[in-house]
Simulated assay, not measured.
Amino acid sequence: MVLIGVLALQGDFAEHKAKLASLGAKTFEIRQLKDLEEPLDGLVLPGGESTVQGKLLRDLGLLKPLQEKIKQGLPVLGTCAGLILLSEKVENQTDNYLGTLPVTVKRNAYGRQLGSFHANLDFAKLGQVPATFIRAPYISEVRDGVEILSQHDGKIVAARYQNQVGLSFHPEVDDNDIVHSYFLKICQTK
Rank of each mutant, 00 (worst) to 15 (best):
V179S: 12
V142T: 13
P171H: 06
Y161W: 04
D35N: 08
F13Y: 04
N120S: 13
L74W: 14
T189F: 01
E147C: 09
V76K: 04
P102D: 10
G54M: 08
V146M: 05
D95S: 10
S22R: 10
M1C: 11
L126G: 08
Q113C: 01
Q128S: 15
A8V: 00
E147F: 13
T132G: 13
F123P: 06
L77K: 06
I178A: 10
G54F: 06
G48L: 00
G73W: 11
I134H: 10
C187V: 14
K55M: 07
E15W: 07
E172D: 01
V146S: 03
A109S: 12
L167V: 00
L114T: 04
D153R: 15
K89F: 02
I4L: 00
V179A: 05
L23S: 04
K34V: 11
V173P: 04
K106V: 07
L40P: 11
A81K: 02
D59Q: 13
G82D: 10
A81M: 04
A136V: 11
Q67F: 09
G47Q: 02
K190W: 01
N92Y: 06
I139H: 05
G82I: 01
G154I: 12
V165E: 12
L86K: 00
N96M: 05
R112G: 09
G54I: 09
Y97G: 01
V179T: 08
N163D: 03
G47P: 01
K19F: 15
L83A: 02
R107H: 06
S22N: 09
G115D: 01
E172G: 03
